[in-house]
């Protein structure tokens, strides 16, 4: 095989590629926290809410988890356009990611809440803490810490999933790759570079989330032990 690699596009399309990376990072960063908040709210609703709320959350979670993200994105983006709401591709992408991540983190957080040892809640009750205090000071931190590795994997999967957003003309990294290859006809070389960039982004995101865990979970930082 006499294939000659040609990475000269890195020079000529540098700003486009940087913009693509920036957009991918933006999509990820903007979607993580709302997605996590939505997921936590849903987990709480499903565990402690009234009957109708439990049913509603279950339907939402199952509907999202059993259909592909790209169909959800298309549904939202093209559907809203027909309704006359012009929200723009970037917003549509973020909304879809938040809804999607919400469903997955709801299941993860539900497992977290259920895994908290009963003694913790009994102890909190003995200290006459209110329901709200128990939730914010006891349940939420412990649940989040218990399932943190699963959450990290989920957020990384979400970052990788942003690669589909070029389908609704959000020109993130994969979309930029497509543009560059359609101009240079170096599809293989271009996507090898894109793949390496995603690997680097995934590694960086993992490091950042682990750093965040060190800051957020004081017990973890002081004792250096898993829960």
């Amino acid at each position: 095989m006499d294939y000659v690699f040609d990475f000269s596009f890195l020079e000529s399309f540098r700003s486009e590629i940087i913009n693509g990376v920036r957009l991918t990072v933006m999509l990820t960063v903007v979607s993580i926290l709302p997605g996590f908040a939505l997921g936590t709210a849903c987990a709480v609703g499903r565990l402690y809410g009234p009957r109708w709320l439990q049913t509603a959350v279950t339907i939402y979670v199952e509907a999202i988890r059993n259909t592909p993200l790209i169909i959800q994105v298309f549904w939202l983006f093209f559907g809203l356009t027909v309704l006359g709401a012009r929200i723009g591709p970037f917003n549509a992408a973020v909304i879809a990611l938040v809804i999607n991540t919400g469903a997955y983190s709801a299941e993860i957080m539900r497992a977290g809440f259920q895994a908290i040892p009963k003694g913790q809640l009994e102890a909190a009750n003995c200290l006459a803490m209110t329901r709200r205090q128990i939730f914010w000071n006891i349940q939420l931190p412990q649940a989040a810490e218990l399932v943190y590795p699963a959450l990290v994997s989920q957020f990384i999967l979400m970052m990788l999933a942003t690669s589909i957003m070029s389908q609704i003309s959000v020109e993130e990294l994969t979309g930029v790759g497509y543009q560059v290859q359609s101009i240079t006809f170096r599809g293989f070389d271009v996507y090898l570079v894109i793949a390496v960039l995603y690997l680097a982004l995934a590694t960086m995101l993992r490091l950042c989330l682990h750093g965040a865990a060190q800051l957020a979970f004081t017990r973890l930082r002081k004792l250096r032990t898993p829960l």
């Binding site: 990384i156 790759g177 290859q181 599809g187 995603y198 590694t203």
Partner: peptide, 16 residues
């Protein structure tokens, strides 16, 4: 660590 669409592209262009 690589999104599936990118794997698809790499294979698609790589095999050719």
């Amino acid at each position: 660590g690589i999104p599936l669409p990118v794997i698809m592209f790499v294979v698609y262009f790589g095999v050719s």
